[in-house]
Amino acid sequence: MQTEQLLPFVIEQLEDIKARDIVTLDVRGKASFTDYMVICSGNSTRHVKSIADHLGLEIKKKEISVLGIEGTDIGEWALIDISDVVVHVMTDEIRDLYQLEKLWAVE
């Protein structure tokens, strides 16, 4: 699946499981490891884990390679690496603390 198809698929899956405040950042030219970052919030650590698990499962169903899923043990911050798209799922507290949107914002 090409990035142009993968990104909308990822967003759709996040919306299906009620991820909140979904933000897509185009980091082409800023990061060598991915083209897009998607950042979203879960209501609780359990919700963060569920979002990451759901996305990982749906991606694998489409036979898309998942490079890694991290952080589902604690659930404050989960990362799903799909190569061209990296998804960060966080609790509100962790999202406020790290402020990835500001870190990767266009200068």
Rank of each mutant, 00 (worst) to 15 (best):
I82H: 09
L6H: 09
D35P: 03
E107M: 06
V87H: 00
D26C: 12
Q99E: 15
V23N: 01
W77L: 10
I39N: 08
F9H: 11
T72Q: 14
H47D: 00
D84P: 09
D53L: 07
S83E: 14
M90F: 12
Q5C: 10
G42P: 03
E76C: 06
D96M: 07
R95Q: 05
S44L: 08
K18A: 08
I64E: 15
D35T: 02
W104S: 05
D84Q: 13
L6M: 13
T34W: 02
A105Y: 11
L7D: 04
P8Q: 04
E101H: 01
C40F: 08
S44M: 08
D81W: 08
E76F: 11
A19G: 08
A52K: 08
A78C: 14
V66S: 09
T72F: 01
E15C: 12
V106L: 12
D26S: 07
Q99S: 15
A19R: 00
K102D: 15
I80V: 14
Y98R: 08
I80G: 02
I69A: 11
M1K: 11
K30C: 09
L67N: 15
I51V: 13
I94D: 06
V89T: 08
D16I: 07
D96C: 02
E70V: 12
K61T: 10
H47V: 04
T34N: 05
F33L: 13
L57H: 14
L25D: 05
I69W: 09
V38N: 02
V89L: 13
L79R: 06
I39S: 02
L7Q: 10
K60V: 07
T91E: 01
L57T: 15
A52Q: 05
M37T: 03
I59W: 05
H88D: 12
V38S: 04
S44Y: 10
G56W: 09
A105D: 14
R28L: 03
E63C: 12
T24V: 14
R20C: 00
G71F: 04
M90L: 15
I11M: 05
E76Y: 08
L67P: 01
I59V: 15
G29M: 10
M90H: 03
V85Q: 04
D35I: 00
D21N: 14
S83R: 13
Q2D: 13
S41V: 02
H88K: 02
L25F: 06
R46L: 13
S83L: 14
I39V: 12
